[in-house]
Amino acid sequence: MTDILEKPGAEPGAMDRAMVRQMLIENPDWVRRDAELLSHLAGAPDGVADLGRVVRDRLLGEVRDLKEQHRTLAYHARENLALLARAQSYVLSLMSCADLDELDYSLAWEAPSALGVQTARLYLEGATPMIVSEAIHPCGHGLVDELLGDENDFTGACAPRTGRTLYGEEMGSHALCRIEASGRTAMLALASQEADQFHSGQGTEILNFVARAVERLITPWLKES
């Protein structure tokens, strides 16, 4: 019997051909999964247009694209689950805040790493509940409506002027969420220097989850102030 493994260029004998044929019949996926082998086996004679090969090549390209899309979706799904877990843990930590001072510290120093952002800010319209603060700031009436319009939240690019106004420096993108607390309008703002971290059409469930927790916390504190 010809050793076709050691002499791949040799003409296989009848027994070798029969063996290979039987193996391929029993294991057709060996050929289907090997795009290069499949292409050679289905190739057309020289000078003959092979429309079938064109279609197969196109289908193989589409399969590769679908696999890449699947990998991308799986990656983003894992990232979202990890972010959700961090957000839940952060919200639980918020429950231990006893007053606005502790909330201010948490937003300034704990929220960025927990939520994967550069900066976290809370703006209160027409209220100055703290003399000195790092993350909780007063703002004029109408600022939230100016930035959000009729929407409850926003994710997308951060204009240079907006970045300097809200965060003291230019940011690539940010996420904003409206808060209503003790009859006052407020806004939670999360910003990143990465332009693609927040984008239009992005899901805002985690953002709203954190915003609603902050809303419940500050409502009684604002009534007292």
Rank of each mutant, 00 (worst) to 15 (best):
G47Y: 07
G149F: 07
E151F: 13
R53I: 09
A195P: 05
G142V: 05
Y105G: 04
S93M: 04
Q118A: 15
A195Q: 15
M130N: 00
E26G: 07
R64F: 00
K67D: 10
A159F: 06
I131N: 13
M171V: 09
V20N: 01
P138T: 05
A213N: 04
A114P: 00
E79V: 07
R53K: 07
L37A: 08
N208R: 15
H199K: 10
M19T: 11
P220A: 06
R32V: 06
R78S: 01
A42E: 15
G61V: 03
C139F: 07
D99C: 02
E169G: 13
G9P: 01
A181W: 06
A14C: 08
I206P: 03
A49G: 02
D150C: 05
A85H: 15
H76S: 06
L66W: 03
Q197I: 11
A157F: 12
E170L: 13
R32G: 10
W109S: 11
R212G: 00
V210M: 01
L100R: 06
G140S: 15
R212A: 06
R216G: 13
A157Y: 12
L84P: 01
V63Q: 10
L207E: 04
A108H: 08
R164Q: 11
P12V: 10
D16Q: 14
T185W: 03
G168A: 03
L5A: 03
T72C: 11
G47N: 11
E194N: 11
L59C: 02
C97W: 01
A35E: 11
M171K: 02
V20S: 06
Q69W: 00
A85I: 10
A127N: 03
W30N: 08
R212T: 13
Q22V: 01
F209S: 02
K223I: 13
I131D: 07
V54I: 14
A213Q: 05
T165H: 12
L143A: 12
Y123L: 14
G13L: 07
T219E: 14
